[in-house]
């Protein structure tokens, strides 16, 4: 993998993880609203929601750049690391449960991504 591909990959993982965490913050921040419409109104006024939207818009462009320097098959396989980073972020930020099956899944995906990345 070229250094530019690695740089774009790291930016992509960062944007995806921050985007998901921000959306989770926005979705869970205010659960006191009486109706669904009020909840959405409140969400649209929240800073984390816009952080998430900006991250995903940027990710759209970054993913295009990533696929321009790698084949599609390698790109989607390397992109699987996003799942691992999001689970880790979920644990660190929201104290989400990490059971044995989840840890095994994360380990397998990480090893798989390393194999794909080493030969890309």
């Amino acid at each position: 993998m070229s250094s530019i591909a690695i740089l774009i990959w790291v930016i992509n993982v960062t944007l995806d993880t921050v985007g998901h965490v921000a959306l989770k913050f926005a979705a869970t921040a205010d659960q006191q609203e009486s109706t669904e419409i009020k909840r959405w109104k409140s969400m649209f006024g929240s800073f984390p929601l816009w952080v998430g939207i900006v991250c995903f818009c940027l990710e759209f462009v970054v993913w295009l750049a990533f696929l321009s320097v790698l084949s599609l098959s390698q790109g989607v396989l390397l992109g699987a690391i996003n799942m691992v980073s999001i689970v880790i972020a979920g644990r660190l930020v929201f104290k989400e449960r990490l059971d044995r099956m989840r840890l095994m899944g994360m380990a397998l995906i990480t090893i798989g991504v390393i194999f794909v990345g080493l030969y890309a």
């Binding site: 396989l77 799942m83 689970v87 994360m106 397998l108 995906i109 798989g112 390393i114 194999f115």
Partner: peptide
């Protein structure tokens, strides 16, 4: 890389 792809797919199933 094919081995890696298989590991990733099994990992997704575990998740």
């Amino acid at each position: 890389q094919i081995v890696g792809a298989l590991l990733i797919v099994i990992g997704i199933i575990c998740l």
